[in-house]
């Protein structure tokens, strides 16, 4: 039965981390994917980081092989990072090359520290979710293949995080990343009257942010096509509000998000490409758009400038001009918080 909470630290944390708990003083990156942390006592802790299958989808077969490596190289412990990459902690420095090779044989590339392309974060998409407008795992795979070399080598001005969400619910956190891909629905929800009759109609009406949903007597609702903003809010509380249209669903590209406080501070990413169509299995135009933005950033940004910092220096005018992405009325925010992104004053970048 549930109700026990967290296991004690000793059950999962490696002894080297417990021995030096709170006493770490320094770290350096020896090469992409290999970190060295030094504790007060002088003890050094070597970490090897590797990319994991897209969407953090791990079969028990792979998990058991990873456990085998952890037993052999890291005293029986491993760690998963906040971006779901794998870390083996406390590795003997003399065996790092051997471990890298063994991980490579498992198909897991070593890298993703420092100024590199990091492991992608994506939601479950069409593998397992009813809301997804696009298949986040496949998009993640296509982008990861394209930027694979940049995971292994540091050729960026700063780190690059890419996250992919299958819909605007953003379980895949597209808006948090340097470059985010967010699935968008564009068609109206289909109202299945007999299903809606079995739902809490006042709740469906109240979750709609624009008041587009009105009750339709006796026991259903109707959607005002002029006011619907395709936010998917009504689909969650009622299975009679069905979304998803293969011909018009697609995805949008956002750039410039980051969480840390350095540089221009924490910010959400902004929508720069309002719509691209779904083209399974490899979404070539998404990959192309990402490649175009990344290449420009690599060429133009100063050292330590993440994409958001770079754009806040050069301005959105120049970003659009240099990437060649067209500006349309879709970029202007018209939703409730719109004054936050509308320009006041005439301090333009020309």
């Amino acid at each position: 039965m549930p109700g026990v909470g967290l296991p004690p630290l000793e059950q999962n944390v490696p002894p080297i981390a417990l021995r030096n708990y709170g006493k770490w003083v320094d770290h350096e990156e020896l090469r992409p994917g290999v970190l060295k942390h030094v504790a007060e006592s002088g003890e050094a802790c070597y970490t090897v980081r590797a990319g994991m299958p897209t969407n953090a989808r791990v079969s028990t077969a792979l998990a058991r092989r990873i456990a085998g490596l952890a037993d052999e190289f890291a005293e029986g412990h491993l760690r998963l990072t906040r971006r779901h990459s794998l870390e083996l902690v406390g590795v003997d420095p003399a065996r790092i090359d051997e471990l890298t090779e063994r991980l490579r044989k498992l198909g897991l590339p070593v890298g993703g520290t420092g100024r590199t392309f990091r492991n992608t974060v994506s939601c479950t998409g069409w593998i397992h979710c009813q809301f997804a407008a696009t298949d986040a795992p496949a998009v993640a795979k296509a982008i990861s293949d394209e930027l694979y070399e940049d995971f292994l080598r540091e050729r960026y001005p700063a780190k690059l995080k890419i996250s992919i969400s299958g819909c605007v619910n953003q379980c895949g956190e597209g808006s948090t990343a340097d470059i985010g891909i967010i699935g968008v629905h564009r068609d109206l929800p289909r109202v299945i009257d007999e299903e809606v009759a079995r739902c809490e109609i006042p709740l469906i009406v109240s979750v709609c942010p624009t008041g587009a949903i009105k009750p339709k007597p006796p026991k259903s609702v109707q959607v005002d096509p002029e006011r619907c903003i395709h936010c998917v809010a009504c689909a969650a509380p009622c299975q009679g509000m069905q979304i998803g249209d293969p011909e018009t669903d697609g995805l949008a590209v956002v750039v410039g998000g980051k969480a840390g406080n350095s540089g221009s501070g924490p910010a959400f990413a902004k929508f720069v490409i309002p719509y691209l169509p779904n083209r399974p299995p490899r979404w070539p135009e998404v990959v192309q758009a990402v490649r175009r933005i990344v290449d420009l950033w690599v060429r133009e940004a100063r050292r330590d400038e993440r994409i958001g910092d770079w754009i806040s220096r050069i301005g959105w005018e120049r970003f659009f001009q240099k990437t060649g992405l067209p500006v349309s009325e879709k970029h202007l925010d018209g939703y409730v918080l719109w004054p936050m992104s509308a320009r006041t004053g005439v301090r333009f970048h020309w």
Binding site: F131, C171, R198, C199, E200, A236, P237, Q239
Partner: peptide, 9 residues
Amino acid sequence: GLPKPTGCV
């Protein structure tokens, strides 16, 4: 006898 709760988000 209330409607079935749904949804994961």
